[in-house]
Computed example of a mutant assay.
Amino acid sequence: MADRVNAFVPGPRIRIPGREGGPLAGLTFAVKDLFDVAGTPTGGGNHDWAKANPVPERHAWAVQSLLDAGAELVGKTITDEVSLGILGENAFDGTPLNTAAPDRVPGGSSSGSAAAVAAGLCDTALGTDTGGSMRVPGSFCGLYSIRPTHGRLDLTGLMPQAPSSDTAGWFTRDAATFARIGTVLLGEAPGPLPTKLLVAVDAFGFADPEVAAALQPMVQRLAGVLDTTPRDEIMAPQGLSVWARAQRSLQPVEAWQTFRPWIERDNPRMAFSVAAGLIAGSQVPVSEQNWAALMREEARARLRYLLPPGTILCLPTTPFPAPLRGLPMPALRPMRDRITSLCAQGGLTGHPQVNLPGALVDGAPVGLSIIGGRGTDASLIAVAQAMEAASS
Rank of each mutant, 00 (worst) to 15 (best):
D103P: 00
R336L: 15
A168H: 07
F206A: 09
I146Q: 02
A179Q: 12
G85F: 10
G350T: 06
T124K: 05
R19W: 00
A214G: 11
A125W: 06
D232A: 13
P160S: 14
R104I: 00
G205K: 04
L324T: 02
R296T: 00
S109G: 08
Q238L: 15
T195Q: 15
A69E: 13
H351N: 15
A390Q: 11
L313S: 10
I263G: 07
H150R: 14
C314I: 06
P352Q: 10
A101N: 02
T124P: 02
S287A: 15
F320H: 13
T156N: 06
F8Q: 02
Q257P: 02
L153S: 11
T177I: 05
L240K: 00
L34F: 05
N90G: 06
D80R: 08
E298A: 10
I16N: 05
L186P: 01
I370Q: 04
L360D: 11
P285Y: 07
N267G: 12
T77C: 12
A293C: 06
E210Q: 15
S392C: 03
A100F: 06
V354E: 13
K76D: 10
P192R: 12
P96Y: 10
F178G: 10
L126E: 05
W256D: 06
I146G: 00
A389F: 11
T128K: 05
M1D: 13
N267C: 07
V361Y: 02
P357K: 05
S392G: 11
N90K: 06
R333N: 04
D129G: 03
L87S: 10
N90T: 06
D129P: 01
F320A: 12
V201L: 08
G372A: 10
R104N: 01
A382C: 09
L294Y: 15
G151W: 08
G142P: 09
S110E: 13
V201W: 04
E57S: 07
R19A: 13
V63T: 08
Q216T: 12
Q161E: 09
R300Y: 05
L84T: 01
N290W: 14
G39I: 08
A119H: 00
D227W: 01
N98R: 06
S249A: 12
T172M: 07
V55I: 14
A62V: 08
D129I: 03
G39M: 05
A384D: 12
E297C: 03
Q345H: 14
S341A: 15
C314W: 07
M270A: 13
P230D: 13
N267P: 02
D208F: 07
I279L: 15
P17G: 07
A255S: 11
I14N: 04
D33L: 08
M159P: 03
F92I: 05
F29P: 12
M1G: 14
R147W: 08
